[in-house]
Amino acid sequence: MDVLFLVAAASAVFCSLMVVSRRNPIYSAAWMMGALASVAVVFALLQATFLAVIQVLLYAGAIMVLFLFVIMLLNPTPADLAREDVPAGQRVLATALAAVLLGVLGWVFLGGEPAAAPPFADRPAPVGFGDTAYFGSTIYDEYLVAFELISLVILAAIAAVVLVGKRRLLIGGIEARAERERQLAQARARAASGPEGRGAERTAAEEEPVHAH
């Protein structure tokens, strides 16, 4: 078990480093899959089988595919990728913050006295821990309200995204329709005032592109 954990953890760390250090986002996405799979293995080793499978199903199988879709849709050229548009000082700041984080984590893990027994040794995992039924009853019995509240928050976020994303389309559509109606009204007015034969002809010619919309 420990060997498997070490392999999975090392692989997760290595893959994550590759994610942030690749210049081409497609490769970042590929390494990200590796990182997600490694974490899934860690979950499985912790008896959290359901989480492990959901990790693969949702993150690797759905969310990363969407990332990939966007990257492929934009399909950056080598010239795009070679461009340096990092704000000045960002690298220095990022390195400093990473060093602080590493220092804090190191202090927490290495600084204290080693515990006599592993924490939670007196509280073994409940029967069935980590499988689907246990997970379901935890969410839908014990933490039902919290779970539903989170669902609401996510729903609100989705609605907001749709509104932000589609606002231009919405307003643009309304303006376009107003413009079409204005043109149509002008054409009708001209047809009514102009000489009979020519007016009718011109109206037909003018109305055609309007209908084509």
Binding site: F50, V53, I54, V56, L57, A60, G61, V65
Partner: peptide, 9 residues
């Protein structure tokens, strides 16, 4: 679920 996860890959 395992089947769904793997076929999604």
């Amino acid at each position: 679920l395992f089947v769904l996860a793997l076929t999604s890959l």
